[in-house]
């Protein structure tokens, strides 16, 4: 058995790669976000990198000195409406709420949230599977080359065969997160490594 902490496809390594933008530099996305007054949606299907991009944008705002807030909701993770209103009530002008999965809110409540945010003169960046809730900042897309790029970063010493990433990509209907979890399970069945480690870094 391979220990979870040795698995090359563990979440921490995936998060470290961050969002790989295919159409434009990340800097351009950040600039457009400011032009759009930070009221936007990151749109795309399951496993296309919406949450990853949202985290990147929030980090960027944090490092630029903005105060940000974070909420998460999904089909499986409920979020009491009171928690949403409490969060928005504490917000001041120019602060930004990064709301992952906001499309899971009932329409009436989402409209109420939008109104509250505008009244506060604050920002709202959401992820959504469909367009129309807020102006679209980015439409996240996937393709077999993107999967191949991510896998080659996680396994720099192993050649990644194109046909394999293509087959995996189609097997999971373009959901890259599911492709990577399958690879996690496959690698999890292999060898065991022992020993404590030291890691260092910057930033």
């Amino acid at each position: 058995m391979m220990r979870a902490k040795d698995n090359p496809f563990r979440s921490q390594r995936l998060n470290a790669i961050g969002y790989i933008s295919q159409d434009e530099p990340l800097r351009a996305i950040c600039e457009r976000l400011e032009e759009m007054k930070s009221i936007v949606a990151v749109v795309g299907p399951h496993g296309s990198g919406k949450s990853t991009l949202l985290r990147h944008l929030q980090k960027r705002f944090d490092s630029d000195g903005y105060r940000t807030h974070q909420l998460f909701i999904s089909r499986d993770v409920k979020l009491p409406w009171k928690r949403v209103t409490e969060c928005v009530e504490t917000m001041r002008p120019s602060e930004v709420l990064f709301f992952d999965g906001a499309n899971h809110l009932p329409t009436r409540r989402f409209c109420r949230l939008k109104k509250m945010i505008r009244k506060k003169d604050a920002g709202l960046v959401i992820t959504s599977h469909t367009e129309g809730l807020l102006p679209t900042l980015v439409q996240c897309r996937t393709n077999p080359d993107l999967l191949k790029e991510i896998v080659s970063r996680l396994l720099p010493d192993e050649p990644v065969e194109s046909w394999k990433s293509e087959a995996l990509f189609h097997q999971h209907h373009g959901n890259i997160r599911d492709c990577l979890w399958q690879l996690y399970d496959e690698y999890g069945s292999s060898s065991y490594q022992d020993g404590c480690k030291s890691y260092s870094g910057s930033g």
Partner: peptide
């Protein structure tokens, strides 16, 4: 450690931006 999760203890030193 299991196949799905590991729990790791560590000391973490931070100085400026280095860690």
């Amino acid at each position: 450690s299991g196949r799905l999760i590991s729990l790791v203890w560590a000391l973490e030193l931070q100085v400026g931006k280095e860690w």
